[in-house]
Write a protein that binds this DNA or RNA. Sequence first.
DNA 1: CTGTTAGCGCCTTCAT
DNA 2: ATGAAGGCGCTAACAG
Lengths: 341, 341
Amino acid sequence: MKPTVHDIASKAGVSLATVDRVINLRPGVHAVTRAKVETAILELGYVRDMAAANLAKGRSYALVFILPNNDNSFMAGLRAEVRAAASRSYVDRTSIRIIEVPPFDAAALAQALDVARLEKPSGVAFVAIDAEDVVEAVDRLTDSGIAAVTLVSDLTGSRRDHFAGVDNVAAGRTAASLMGRFLPEKGGDVAVLAGSMLVKDHRERLAGFKAVMEEEFPDLRLLPVLEGRDDPDTVQRLVAECLETNPQLLGLYSLGAGNRGLIKALKSSRQLSSPCVIAHELTENTTNALAEGVLDAVLNQNAGHEVRSAIRVLKARADGLAVIEAQERIRIDIFLRDNLP
Amino acid sequence: MKPTVHDIASKAGVSLATVDRVINLRPGVHAVTRAKVETAILELGYVRDMAAANLAKGRSYALVFILPNNDNSFMAGLRAEVRAAASRSYVDRTSIRIIEVPPFDAAALAQALDVARLEKPSGVAFVAIDAEDVVEAVDRLTDSGIAAVTLVSDLTGSRRDHFAGVDNVAAGRTAASLMGRFLPEKGGDVAVLAGSMLVKDHRERLAGFKAVMEEEFPDLRLLPVLEGRDDPDTVQRLVAECLETNPQLLGLYSLGAGNRGLIKALKSSRQLSSPCVIAHELTENTTNALAEGVLDAVLNQNAGHEVRSAIRVLKARADGLAVIEAQERIRIDIFLRDNLP
DNA sequence: CTGTTAGCGCCTTCAT
DNA sequence: ATGAAGGCGCTAACAG
């Protein structure tokens, strides 16, 4: 039988309250008494039943998600996943609030982080933008004892507790590797389309892509990077122009979002041979494009997994508990036409 | 405030015990009373707190995992994941027992299923072998009200509740697609190495691989399938022979396990140009082989995810609850040298 | 500093 | 067929 507080109380010769004080690191226990209790805990191999503890506390984890209100399917999907998690909150003992902020706006994000902090939640998850005032706002959060998790895009130099997202350098490298091997000919031009160099995930994907291209496929030339700000219309215009001016384009790597525009541009282009195109994030649009052969591969991060992972980590941090590391590693999904879900 | 049994009791004008009887579908409640309670439940939007219920019941989910004692890294990893889950059982309210059976032995599996049934656990997870007596044993399980989940390899025709594994037809198709695109030349021989045609996952991978090869890469000829029984030594011998007799082999798809032998054979072969090799399951061996360029791609199923998923599903089935479908879909991971974990 | 008591939401005797 | 009372493991007042 699993030992309970009663067992350790009687073994240590103290009352339940004292045991509770020791377990919860509360003050007001004589060092000697505390030692007795701790010994009993160790000897009996006691592990506290969090379900019972949460029941007694009537605890509910208040969580804030700060998400950009981008008009692209990936972010829409991410927001939907957070809402889905919020709708399960009655069983999770969580209460999730969403704050939407304009995309690529560091000041707005920093401000939202401060707003979140004042609500004194158990934890905050947010899509980071690389900027000093964001870093400072995050550190204010952790200083207040609030768990902080970055989602999708990480924030170096901050004291966030965890990053729920993929290894974006590896994603870029993978894209390059696939493209290099998919292209039959050597020598030719490859275009790269990013969202914004303001966010770390895009910079990292680009770095990974460039690195492998230079190391392993030196005959492929990279054209100057286009920035579409993850906006479908902007992306469509940029890609259409690019295809126009480079009729013999071999490959195109779209490392950001706004692929609706990308696909439209590709479909309406009248190239002799269509380029090998690799994009990110599996949505209805990219799924169809893959099936039709407009895209050759899609790298994906599972937004549902990221959100559920962020919640698990925030709850665990709030309780000072460990997580199953392997479960929280977000993998890079590679989709071809053949393994669509 | 979330409604509790007290709220619905007072609203329905009955006692807690009666409410409990209705909630748990226990007999001994007048139809009229039951209706009153059910109305109250609906009107208040009551959802029962499973954590509190489990606490009161002192419930622990007894789970049995039946696993083949194969000598290959994938199965060893799977067994390790189950043991890891078992070691977390004190927090999961599960008690997991592992039964090991000889590989590819339908009779032994059927017998183990019957043994498991007699222990009256909440659920059973097992790696299926396609055979009639296994199907019957599984149906005896579900007839006894025990949840049954297939792991890694599925069992058609049985009444198992769920399959915790990947879409193996898609995996085979994906392998073919990658290989066809990776191979620079047209025309040539491709070898396929399976474990056993007795298990459904291997048959499905082969079918998917063949289908795409025929549809999209008709110039690549498939050599007769080799069966290595997932045994490293057998595999090594078969592959060495194959490389010997087909010096100009273009590609090799290893759709089973025992890749230790595959890699040894590849390394010691003195081919002019090494073939494009795609294998399954990321282990220490295949990871190293990918990094060294001996393998070109590895398709993986995350054993940890499969085990955790099986446990979640078994627990949910035992309680008659729903699961988050998306969370239980096991994805096919594609690993290249560039996205190794 | 330490102990007693009541209760979180639910389930299970045992009466009635 | 229904209800009252006690308890699951833990925490939170409130006393001492």
